[in-house]
């Protein structure tokens, strides 16, 4: 099998990563809170109403960050699962496991806030014929399928290996979601920011969106670190280095 560079091994060491998470977590949480509050103020108060959609467009500031995280989360989960599968690194599987429920919740949010936005804009909450909507729904089922598949195994190592295959195969859905609005243009509008041309949105509207995406990403990282620490303790419960952390919660 392919060799890994030396520096990588530190990142495969549970005590090292647990301690880093313990140190970074409070800073990440505080920064996430400030960024989201700032972004929400910008999106709800400072940004001007849209000339066509009026104030309903403000849903973009929760919809786009959720949709972005649903896809970014799945990609990270698949990469972590692949690393765990190929190099047999347990910590990588722990990362994938930690991402799954968080990614699923943001996928749910992207679908629900999109539906709410669709009602005044398209005249419907849901359209079975729209490719973007269908593939985003498939993404939710991939997350849930990954979790259900894991739950069906007693043996954790077996669950790691089998669920990694599902995670990796399912990642083809992510570029399909991204390009769906160009390949099959139906109801969902085309890309606003992530395209080679200049963004088709004015700076007053774009700035809060970028802040919100940053805030949601920080929040996502905070959530993953929490779950990862729990997952590490479950997998390493016999290790001596964990004792002082266990003492602290007594």
């Amino acid at each position: 099998m392919l060799g890994l560079p030396r520096w990588f091994h530190r990142w495969a060491s549970p005590p090292h990563v647990y301690e880093l998470a313990e140190r970074w977590r409070p800073w990440l949480g505080g920064l996430a809170l400030l960024t989201i509050l700032g972004g929400a103020y910008g999106g709800l108060v400072l940004a001007p109403p849209d000339y066509l959609q009026g104030d309903s467009f403000r849903i973009i500031y929760v919809h786009v960050p959720s949709a972005y995280l649903s896809m970014m989360g799945y990609t990270l989960m698949a990469v972590a699962a692949a690393i765990g599968f190929v190099w047999r690194i347990k910590l990588a599987h722990a990362v994938a496991v930690s991402i799954a429920p968080i990614g699923a919740s943001f996928t749910f949010l992207a679908l629900v806030t999109g539906g709410i936005w669709g009602r005044p804009t398209w005249g419907t909450y849901w359209e079975w014929g729209d490719a973007r909507l269908m593939f985003e729904l498939l993404l939710l089922f991939l997350y849930l399928g990954y979790m259900a598949l894991r739950a069906s195994f007693e043996d954790r190592d077996k669950a790691d290996r089998v669920s990694a295959i599902l995670a990796v195969v399912g990642v083809v859905n992510v570029p399909i979601i991204h390009y769906s609005v160009e390949w099959w243009s139906t109801l969902h509008q085309g890309p606003t920011i992530a395209k080679l041309d200049t963004p088709s949105i004015t700076f007053d509207m774009l700035a809060p969106l970028l802040v919100m995406i940053a805030g949601f990403t920080l929040c996502f990282a905070w959530l993953v670190l929490n779950r990862l620490q729990g997952e590490i303790v479950e997998r390493e419960h016999d290790a001596r280095w964990l004792r002082r952390f266990a003492e602290a919660v007594r």
Binding site: A40, L44, G54, D55, S56, R58, I59, F106, F108, W117
Partner: peptide, 22 residues
């Protein structure tokens, strides 16, 4: 919200609830 209050506030409200649950 320019007449869009039910849509805007329900979207933000659900987001807040899901993030807090998370």
């Amino acid at each position: 919200m320019g007449g869009y209050a039910p849509y805007v506030w329900s979207a933000y409200g659900i987001t807040l609830v899901v993030v807090l649950l998370n």
